[in-house]
């Protein structure tokens, strides 16, 4: 697939991000735009999955952008620019949750799932597994879920996740270990294990 080929061929983006933040620190609005044309949606997705409220997620994303503008000169280049930005996002999202008593991720109570009726034949098995996994994800504690998000959605290493979350690497590994256990439990109950037995004639 072409995206993959292109991905392997690219270089120096991390440096480019750091250069963008440096320019933002000098008051360069074009650099600010460039940074968030790249990371705006990432920030929004991350925040949304934490606060589970579209309007609030948009407000927080806006706040993150302003915070980056204000704080760019404080960025010391010790971490990647993206983990620095997501660290800010995490901080503001947590404030939003605490301040407004937002109900966090309530997939379990969403009509689709709480309905109780089995999905019709029109819904394929694969969607059922997806749904079960999503429910299992929603049931994780927020710290555990966040590690999974950062690792699998944002593609961060455990070192980078530790940077974003501001905790030791060992804590990140432990959280992932427990999250993985619970998520696999969901897969087990979805009948996936029997999969390889359904040989095609």
């Amino acid at each position: 697939m072409s995206a993959y080929v292109r991905l392997s061929g690219m270089a120096d983006n991390e440096d480019k991000d750091i250069a963008l933040v440096t320019r933002i620190a000098e008051g360069d609005k074009a650099a600010f735009r460039a940074l968030f044309e790249t990371y705006g949606e990432r920030v929004f997705r991350y925040v949304y999955r934490m606060v589970n409220d579209e309007g609030r997620a948009e407000e927080v994303t806006n706040d993150v952008m302003l915070e980056v503008w204000k704080g760019a000169r404080k960025f010391e280049g010790r971490s990647k620019a993206s983990t620095w930005v997501l660290g800010i996002a995490r901080h503001l999202a947590l404030n939003a949750i605490r301040g407004k008593q937002l109900v966090t991720v309530d997939l379990v109570d969403s009509p689709e799932v709480a309905d109780g009726r089995e999905p019709e034949a029109t819904v394929r098995d694969r969607d059922t597994v997806k749904q079960k996994l999503r429910v299992a994800l929603a049931k994780l504690s927020s710290d555990h879920r966040e590690v999974v998000e950062l690792a699998f959605f944002h593609g961060y290493s455990y070192q980078e996740v530790a940077e974003v979350m501001g905790c030791p690497e060992s804590t990140v590994k432990t959280r992932m270990f427990h999250a993985k256990k619970q998520l696999r439990q969901a897969l087990k109950h979805s009948g996936l294990d029997g999969m390889t037995l359904e040989a095609v004639p």
Binding site: L7, A11, N13, E14, T38, R42, K80, S82, G155, E160
Partner: peptide, 10 residues
């Protein structure tokens, strides 16, 4: 350099 950064570039 993380693939995430590379992806963002792409």
């Amino acid at each position: 350099r993380s693939i995430f950064a590379v992806f963002a570039e792409w």
